[in-house]
């Protein structure tokens, strides 16, 4: 089945809530039925066809084109299929998604992958704040799946994260993994200030050093070679991330915390001076 191409007709300034841009909603629909799906434009309900050109019948593969910076909630709660986005995307992309893939050839705004439970979200540009985080009032953020960001990511990535993997190839903003419950965050660039504040369990891996040191509520444990990281980093290399043999076999300094809470979280800082055996 060929992909359904959805193209923005003209630039927009009002926010668009487009939960219907999802393979779950598109699958099995004819082209005119896809165009009739509802979207919220500002405070008015419109149809998809009012703002977007739709090519092809509904399928589990969607290609989105245009300046989508004001289009929010694309792929929200999706469970299957694939969305390819060519351009920048608005907030809540892939929030609460449970399966499938979203590939973005551009930047994404805040709350991408928020409370995500499964699937793959790959961003070839930068990500805004609250990547994979929990919405206010919620106890758990990301709870499964994988988020890969080729650029930088904003503050509070992985807030209250419960499970899953967030990988940022560039730099990661402040408060990464704040109140993290479990899961893993890997950053190839620098790790921002106050990482892991209030974290109970989980792992934050800093491959490119620290912006501003660690909180005093993290205690130094040891320098060692975590075998599980060999497993993880090899998998990341399989996803095309620039993992070096030195990183796979390298020495990491382990800090545990946050001792203001359970204290079973860890921050692993790659020692770029230590050479592997």
């Amino acid at each position: 089945m060929s992909a359904t191409i959805v193209r923005l007709k003209a630039s927009i300034t009002l926010p668009v809530e487009a939960e219907s841009l999802s393979p779950d909603r598109f699958a099995g629909l004819r082209q005119e039925e896809v165009a009739a799906l509802p979207i919220l434009y500002g405070r008015r309900w419109l149809t998809l066809g009012d703002l977007f050109e739709v090519e092809g019948d509904g399928s589990e593969e969607i290609v989105l084109e245009g300046d989508l910076r004001h289009v929010k909630r694309i792929g929200q709660r999706m469970s299957r299929g694939r969305i390819n986005v060519h351009g920048d995307v608005g907030m809540h992309l892939g929030a609460e998604m449970r399966g499938g893939e979203i590939i973005v050839h551009g930047n994404v705004d805040a709350w991408a992958g928020a409370q995500m439970a499964g699937g793959l979200l790959r961003v070839h540009g930068n990500a805004g704040p609250m990547l994979g985080a929990a919405y206010p009032g919620e106890t758990r953020g990301m709870r499964g799946g994988v988020i890969l960001v080729e650029g930088d990511a904003g503050p509070r990535a992985g807030e209250r994260m419960r499970r899953g993997l967030i990988v940022v190839r560039g730099n990661l903003g402040a408060f990464a993994g704040v109140r993290m419950i479990a899961g893993s965050i890997v950053v190839f660039g620098t790790l921002g200030a106050r990482a892991g504040a209030g974290m109970k369990r989980g792992t934050i891996v800093a491959l490119g050093g620290l912006t501003d040191g660690l909180l005093p509520t993290f205690r130094y444990a040891c320098a060692y070679r975590p075998t599980f990281l060999c497993f993880y980093l090899r998998r990341l290399r399989g996803w095309g991330l620039p993992v070096t043999p030195e990183q796979i076999e390298g020495v990491f300094h382990r800090y545990t915390g946050d001792i203001t809470t359970l204290g079973k979280g860890e921050i692993l800082v790659y020692d770029q001076r230590e050479r592997a055996i």
Binding site: V146, R163, L165, S184, T203, Y224, R225, P226, T227, F228, F231, Y232, R235
Partner: peptide, 20 residues
């Protein structure tokens, strides 16, 4: 534990590091 793509690995602390 660490879970990746449905595979769950256990990290058990031992005197020399971790047993995975």
């Amino acid at each position: 534990s660490k879970r990746l793509e449905g595979r769950r690995l256990w990290r058990i602390p031992v005197m020399e590091g971790e047993f995975l």
